[in-house]
Design a protein around this nucleic acid. Structure first.
Length: 577
RNA sequence: GGGCCCAUCGUCUAGCCUGGUCUAGGACGCGACCCUUUCAAGGUCGAAACACGGGUUCGAAUCCCGUUGGGCUCACCA
């Protein structure tokens, strides 16, 4: 039998990093066993789902390189993803409503499901009462429930939901990573399967679609563990029109991915971080935030409604729109924690680094390399070759940004220069157009070899080359750096000798330029280490830069000499030396 | 609070199923040193863990029980 896995996100925002890990494992398991991996969009919450979010998730998956065999169609790098070769679609649950209704009706006809007419207020009251008695609220049909009357009321058009009549027995199932799990009947209520708007609930849609789409292995986050007994009970109760029973697929619940403080990694973490910073700064309203934004571009923040901001700042459950939040973060001087795949992409992470890091969250190959080191940083092909459910761990893992950053740095360093430039250009086009305009791909190419090992993210490239992104006339010289560089004996003479040598240099290549500092040093009885800082601070304004030859070659002779002049002027102003 | 799940360095983890080879291995981070005209990168070395208590056993990180701690979940959200 073909192994079939699926990833079934709800399109309420960008793909969460935990979702990406789930999708990756589903994909890897299917590939490992020459099976199929399908993607289904669970858009049954009409209020929160959006087509743009669904598209965003497809883009995120494609960016990571996780290709789905079946599901919504998508073009990625000339490759067509998705499709419906087995004719089991559509893959948007909102397009499968009639199917759910038919199955619900069958359940009702067999007395295994029933209409319920409670209003939200009534349910809330029931819950509150249960809580007061320190009891868990579990919905049950009232003793006097009259099925015939209920069905008549429903037929008359009275609004209602359909609930599953939970069979009174404990539910037991086997989880591939956790083992046997048993849940007592008392914990299982008569949950809703069809909402008042005619849409299925998650529980109902997932059970029907997994059956109809032939899914054999369900991999999902551990937060779903408690839902599984409901699904198993449903599967046992349901049948096809021809009377055939539903299958019970294999389950594997993946560990939670947590923040360093042990809280679950959530999209709200970004709002939380910004809110905390606002409080720290005493920014209580939009006007205050905008005041700080003076002079900096914060278009999305400006477009925000003051009352929306006021609500956001006090209500922990509220989230600001993505772009407005980014603007706000810039204004209050923090970087938001990345939690969605797209956040990492924007921050300059490479997909291969993200992938190799998240596949180690709750799984590892358990192999050593020739040096006795753990095998880490796998690529997709290695993952497929080695993946197995047996090696999936049981305990929650914390997301370690430092390690991800290290993986990313190594991935960047491993890129051939041309590829590095190509990736940076593609990234900068969207996320740092200013740097792209000032630097340009061609100039980056010339110094790529020196920039790569200094970047932990693609964004760092502009930071490493900041001196080159600044116009000669706007370069500022750090006074402390100048003082330090000039602390050498006869600094003025050395500086002039450097300038003369540079002006006369016959060959403006990195290797030729690298020879100048030792030459000048030797001629004046100084060491290269005493001379180099003078030149470095003159052309970059600081004491830190890529190797001087590369730095000078990138700037070019005219720019170098102009900077030398400006620096000399500043040294003169500061006093003779 | 009820139910479910989990528990090895700060973090990700190997080892656990099939007790001894574990004075518990690797990676990230951290510290030191080397290399070096700065910063990186690279190299070498170092500090750092079996939550606790009972069993079982000649022997337990490994098996059993309990305690403690943590997480998830209790919606007409998924």
């Amino acid at each position: 039998m073909t192994l079939i896995t699926r990833f079934a996100p709800s399109p309420t925002g960008h793909l969460h990093i935990g979702g990406a890990r789930t999708a990756l494992f589903c994909w890897a398991l299917a590939r490992r066993h020459a099976g199929r991996f399908l993607l289904r969009i669970e858009d049954t919450d009409q209020k929160r789902s959006s087509e743009s979010a669904a598209r965003g998730i497809l883009e995120d998956l494609a960016w990571l390189g996780i290709a789905w065999d079946e599901g919504p169609g998508f073009d990625a790098d000339g490759r067509r993803l998705g499709g419906d070769p087995r004719a089991v679609g559509p893959f948007y649950q909102s397009q499968r409503l009639e199917t759910y209704r038919r199955f619900a009706q069958d359940l009702i006809d067999r007395g295994l499901a029933y209409p319920a007419f409670d209003t939200p207020d009534e349910l809330a009251a029931l819950r509150k009462a249960a809580e007061a008695e320190k009891r868990t609220f579990t919905y049950r049909r009232s003793p006097g429930y009259d099925p015939a009357r209920a069905i008549a009321r429903r037929a008359a058009g009275e609004p209602c939901v359909i609930r599953f009549a939970m069979p009174p027995a404990p539910v037991r199932f086997r989880d591939e990573v956790l083992g046997e799990v048993t849940v007592p009947y008392e914990e299982l209520d008569d949950f809703v399967i069809l909402k008042a708007d005619g849409f299925p609930t998650y529980h109902f849609g997932v059970v029907i679609d997994d059956e109809l789409m032939g899914v054999t292995h369900i991999l999902r986050g551990q937060e779903h563990l408690n839902n599984t007994p409901r699904h198993v009970a449903l599967m046992s109760a349901m049948r096809h029109p021809d009377g055939a029973a539903f299958r019970v697929p294999a389950f594997a619940h993946l560990t939670i991915i947590a923040n360093p403080d042990n809280s679950k990694m959530s999209k709200r973490d970004r709002d939380k971080a910004a809110r905390a910073r606002c409080k720290e700064l005493g920014v209580g309203d939009l006007a205050g935030a905008l005041a700080r934004a003076a002079g900096s571009p914060a278009a999305h923040l400006r477009a925000l409604d003051p009352s929306a901001f006021a609500q956001w700042i006090t209500d922990k459950t509220r989230q600001l729109d993505h772009d407005a939040l980014e603007d706000l973060a810039r204004v209050i001087g923090i970087t938001l924690p990345e939690v969605a795949v797209d956040d990492f992409r924007r921050s300059g992470y490479l997909p291969e680094a993200v992938l190799s890091y998240i596949c180690l969250l709750g799984w590892n190959p358990g192999e050593k390399d020739a040096q006795g080191r753990d095998l880490e940083r796998l690529d997709l092909a290695q993952l497929v070759a080695k993946f197995s459910l047996e090696r999936v761990g049981k305990s929650a893992s914390k997301f370690d940004r430092a390690k991800l950053l290290n993986f990313n740095q190594q991935s960047i360093a491993a890129l051939p220069d041309d590829e590095f430039v190509r990736r940076w250009e593609a990234w900068a086009r969207r996320d740092d157009p200013h740097a792209l305009a000032r630097l340009g791909a061609a100039r980056l190419r010339a110094i790529a070899h020196a920039v790569k090992p200094r970047c932990r993210t693609l964004r760092d490239a502009a930071e490493v080359l900041r001196f080159a992104l600044t116009a000669d006339a706007e370069l500022t010289f750090d006074p402390k750096a100048i003082a330090k560089a000039c602390s050498v004996e006869r600094a003025g003479a050395l500086f002039r000798a450097l300038a003369d040598a540079l002006r006369a240099a016959p060959d403006w290549s990195a290797s030729a330029l690298d020879a100048i500092v030792p030459e000048v040093a030797a001629a004046h009885g100084a060491t290269p280490a005493q001379v180099a800082p003078l030149l470095r601070v003159a052309v970059t304004g600081t004491l830190v830069s890529p190797p001087l030859g590369d730095t000078l070659a990138l700037l070019g002779r005219a720019s170098t000499l102009a900077r030398l002049d400006r620096c000399a002027a500043q040294i003169d102003r500061a006093g003779p030396g």
